Computed example of a mutant assay.
Amino acid sequence: MDTMKSVLTAKDKVDVRDVERPTPGPTDALVRIRACGICGTDTFFLHLGGMPAGTDGSMRAIPLGHEPAGEIVEAGAEVTDVKVGDRVVVNPQGVPSGIIGCGGAHGAMSEYLLIEGVETGKNVTVFPDTVPFEVAALNEPMAVARHAVNRSEAKPADKVVVFGAGPIGLGAAVWLKLRGVEHVVVVDIIPERLETALAVGADAVINSATENVTERLTEVHGRAANALGQPRPGTDIYVDAAGAPAVFQAVVDNAKWHAKLVMVAVQKKSDAIDLGGMLRSELTLIASQGYPTEIFEVTPELVEHHERFARLISHRVPFGEVERAFELALTPGAAEKVVVTFDGEA
Rank of each mutant, 00 (worst) to 15 (best):
D274P: 06
V90P: 08
M59L: 15
A287W: 01
P63T: 14
S288H: 12
G222D: 09
L178N: 10
K155M: 15
V185R: 07
P22R: 07
V162H: 08
L279V: 11
G70K: 07
A346Y: 06
K337L: 03
L30I: 05
P141V: 09
P68H: 01
G50C: 05
V14S: 05
G277T: 04
I38Q: 06
A242V: 03
I273E: 03
A225W: 04
I295D: 14
E301H: 12
K13E: 15
M142Y: 13
H47M: 14
L30R: 09
F127V: 00
W175N: 07
V95S: 00
A310R: 15
N123M: 04
R311W: 10
E119P: 07
A241N: 13
A69F: 06
E153Y: 00
P292F: 00
S152T: 02
A10E: 15
Q93L: 09
V339L: 11
G201K: 00
G57D: 09
F326M: 06
D28I: 02
L8H: 14
V252I: 15
H258K: 14
A265F: 02
T235W: 03
L279I: 13
V14G: 11
I286N: 13
V89G: 14
T80C: 10
L176D: 04
Y112W: 12
A250F: 01
M142C: 13
T235H: 11
E321S: 13
H147E: 09
L114Y: 04
A197S: 11
V14C: 03
A165K: 02
G222S: 05
R193Y: 00
E327R: 14
A246R: 12
L302A: 08
A105G: 01
I100Q: 10
G104K: 12
K177C: 11
K122M: 03
E307G: 07
K155Q: 15
Y238I: 04
P318E: 11
P191F: 05
